[in-house]
C-alpha cells in the first residue's frame, strides 16, 4: 500500500492538512492589526489583474486602442498592477518588521520574495505588449541589459509576439503557482507569533 505513488502523494499533500488549518475560522489573539490585511489586499489586486487581463485577451492585443470599453479595461489592468505593488510592498515591510520568517517560516519568506520577482518580470512583459510608444521605448532600452546577460539570445523584447505569449501564459502561470505555494505555506505554518511571546499562555508545547 505505502509503496503506491498515489498513497505517497496523498500522505505528502492532502494528509498534511487539517480542514481547520486550510480554512480556519479563528486566528491567534495577536492577529489584530491592519498590517495583516495587506496580504489579502495583494491577492485581491492580483485577482483583479487576472480578471481584467482575461477580458483584454478575449478581444485581442490591440482592441483597447480603438474601444472606449477596451481602454477602460486596460486602465483597470494598469491601476490594479500599481495597487498590487503598493499592497505587496506594505505586506513585505510588515512581514520584515515582524521577523515573520521565524519558526520554520523561512520558506514562506523565500516564496514571497519570488512572488515579488516574478511579478516584476510579468509586469515588464506587460509593458512590452501595449503596442504603443511606451512599448517601443521599453523594448529598445531593455534589450541591451538582457543582451548583455545573454538572455536576449532567447528572449527578444522586440519580438512582440513572443512577449505577449510570455505575458499571458507562461509568466502568469509561474506567478500564480508561486503565490499558491506561498499561501499554502502560510496556512500550514500559521501566523507567526509576536517576538518574545515565549513565556505566556501555553504557547510552547
Amino acid at each position: 500500500m505505502s509503496s503506491m505513488w498515489t498513497t505517497k502523494l496523498r500522505k505528502a499533500t492532502v494528509e498534511k492538512f487539517e480542514p481547520q488549518d486550510v480554512l480556519p475560522d479563528d486566528q491567534p489573539s495577536y492577529v489584530a492589526s491592519w498590517i495583516y490585511v495587506f496580504g489579502v489586499l495583494t491577492l485581491s489586486s492580483l485577482a483583479i489583474i487576472i480578471i481584467t487581463g482575461l477580458v483584454l485577451t478575449t478581444r485581442g492585443a490591440i482592441w483597447w486602442h480603438s474601444s472606449n470599453v477596451g481602454h477602460f479595461v486596460n486602465s483597470m489592468h494598469l491601476w490594479s498592477v500599481e495597487l498590487f505593488f503598493v499592497f505587496m510592498v506594505v505586506h513585505l515591510w510588515g512581514k520584515f518588521w515582524m521577523a515573520a520568517w521565524r519558526g520554520r517560516r523561512f520558506a514562506t519568506w523565500v516564496t514571497g520574495a519570488f512572488c515579488f520577482l516574478a511579478s516584476v518580470a510579468t509586469g515588464f512583459t506587460g509593458y512590452l505588449i501595449q503596442w504603443d510608444f511606451d512599448s517601443q521605448w521599453i523594448a529598445t532600452q531593455a534589450k541591451d541589459g538582457l543582451n548583455s546577460a545573454g538572455i536576449g539570445s532567447f528572449f527578444n523584447t522586440l519580438n512582440t509576439g513572443q512577449a505577449i505569449l510570455l505575458h499571458v501564459s507562461l509568466l502568469p502561470l509561474v506567478l500564480t503557482f508561486i503565490v499558491i505555494w506561498h499561501v499554502i505555506l502560510v496556512r500550514r505554518n500559521g501566523v507567526v507569533p509576536p517576538l518574545d511571546a515565549k513565556e505566556i499562555a501555553g504557547g510552547a508545547e
Binding site: W34, I35, F38, V90
Partner: peptide
C-alpha cells in the same frame, strides 16, 4: 506606500 504602512501600524 509609506502612509498605508504607518496607518496600518
Amino acid at each position: 506606500i509609506f502612509v498605508l504602512f504607518f496607518l496600518a501600524l
